[in-house]
Design a protein around this nucleic acid. Sequence first.
DNA 1: GTCCAGGGTTCGT
DNA 2: ACGAACCATGGA
Length: 217
Amino acid sequence: MAHYSIAAVYDRLYQHYGAQQWWPADSAFEVIVGAVLTQNTAWVNVERAIDNLKHAKALDARIILQTPIKRLAQWLKPSGYFNIKAKRLKHVCRWYVSHGAYATLRQWETGKLRESLLAVHGIGKETADAILLYAFDRPVFVIDAYTRRLLRRLGSIHGDESYNDLQRSIERGLARRRDKSRLFNEYHALIVRHAKHSCAAKPRCETCVLQRGCAKK
DNA sequence: GTCCAGGGTTCGT
DNA sequence: ACGAACCATGGA
């Protein structure tokens, strides 16, 4: 079977789908909120929850911290797991405010920022890396189930690597590219975009973007 | 009715 | 170190 390099897969995806313009948010803080709310949840439902926060003028770390957990959970209801996510949002906001918000955090070194995020209850590696990349513009590759599945089927990776190993492997595969933040930003967004692509024809949808003649978007 | 979505924690083995 | 149950809504 043919093996595609990590870089080649990106080129094909970009060629097929074009720039994805992620993350859909008006501010860095909104990215952070969205990153927590989208955990194992369809984005359309996250948008509803964020709209609730906006309509209540509560898309603000200090306001969320002052909001009773019960009311916060009601606003988050459309995004699912609302009781858990209400607590997680509070934890993230406490972290955000206590460290001086974006103005201070944006000056932190990436490794320190990542460790700090991972110490927040409710933020795992994927969410932390999504925040680093999409809220803080750091060159960190986000590993999710789609990434693993796609690159395994294309023979670009073995597939059973740990999160950190796979991340290093992919970042190494793109080491010669420049503008890493923009590249990783688009790559992850393209993988998510491609996961939604269903192609009835063979070969299967995970590989058809690499074939000529598939015009489906 | 079933499956799954832009995961993480907790608790068994 | 790895697996499974748990969290919960809404669209396909």
